[in-house]
Amino acid sequence: MDVFFEPQEGTAFCIQIGLHDSILEIKEKIEKHQGIPVYRQTLVFNDEALDDELDVEGCNIVNCSHIRLVVAPEPPPSTKIELRIGTPPSKMRLPIEVEVNDPVKRLREVVRSLEEVPLERVMLCANGTELEDDRRICDFKLQDNSSVDVHIKPLKFMVMVLPWKANLKVAVEVKPSDKVEVLRKELKTLQPSLKFDLPSEGYFFIHNQSGMDEDKSFIWHGVELGDTIEVFRGTISR
């Protein structure tokens, strides 16, 4: 399908995209055709900024849609720093020199070549925060000799969910990058066949005795293969 992109300055242009293209893949096509780096792009459709992991179908983008392209200013001159890259639980850290204004994706590509795994399975974290592809290294306040942890995501893994006042555990397959909120959808699907109760007045999830933020990913919460997540009645007040 053909979609039109309207930058703040300059002439609108058209790019052919697929129904299942992700927003990140669209940005990469814009970079290829217009020379605008991915990390400087924000796509706005129906007055909402589009997240990179969404796809065309999920955003209700159709043939001849018009999408606003917001281009961030060119970053200041680059500066090099040396990061210490490590894959837990190893205590060894490999020094890698980077430009602070480079996009995170470029650092992931370097790490991928060292780990010899697909790029989509490499996740970088620093100070407990995931480093996102479309942002620059300097956005995360990384300095010379800052530590960056490498996590290799499994394709999918099973977690065990313990429903409210139940004697059974429900096996649910999730992706490490999934937000915890996907558990609600999965439990609702499994509830009729497994006949377990979910508190009608509301419930939240507990992992390792801590309430879970459903807007965060499983890997952010430190959830691993086979871990148990409990359902508790009520809500979490923050």
Results as ranks from 00 to 15, higher is better:
170 V>Y: 07
125 C>H: 09
137 I>N: 11
211 G>I: 04
34 Q>H: 12
160 M>D: 08
155 L>A: 11
117 V>F: 01
179 K>T: 08
143 Q>F: 07
106 R>T: 13
183 L>N: 07
95 P>V: 05
170 V>P: 05
68 R>N: 15
105 K>E: 12
87 T>N: 03
27 K>R: 15
164 W>P: 01
236 I>Y: 08
142 L>E: 02
79 T>P: 00
159 V>L: 04
2 D>P: 00
21 D>M: 08
111 V>Q: 02
50 L>D: 12
35 G>N: 10
9 E>L: 13
135 R>K: 15
5 F>M: 02
133 D>R: 11
233 R>M: 13
131 L>P: 08
81 I>C: 04
37 P>N: 00
119 L>P: 06
66 H>Q: 13
152 I>M: 03
185 K>H: 10
171 A>Q: 15
198 L>S: 03
28 E>I: 04
110 V>F: 10
10 G>Q: 03
108 R>V: 12
81 I>V: 10
196 F>E: 01
12 A>Y: 02
109 E>W: 05
148 V>M: 02
80 K>Q: 13
237 S>V: 12
53 E>G: 14
167 N>C: 07
38 V>G: 03
221 H>V: 07
129 T>C: 08
191 Q>L: 07
24 L>I: 06
68 R>D: 14
205 F>D: 00
139 D>R: 00
184 R>E: 10
168 L>T: 13
191 Q>I: 06
185 K>D: 12
94 L>R: 13
74 E>Y: 02
187 L>M: 12
68 R>H: 15
192 P>H: 07
234 G>W: 07
111 V>F: 01
15 I>E: 10
134 D>Y: 00
211 G>W: 04
49 A>K: 15
235 T>F: 13
148 V>N: 03
35 G>I: 09
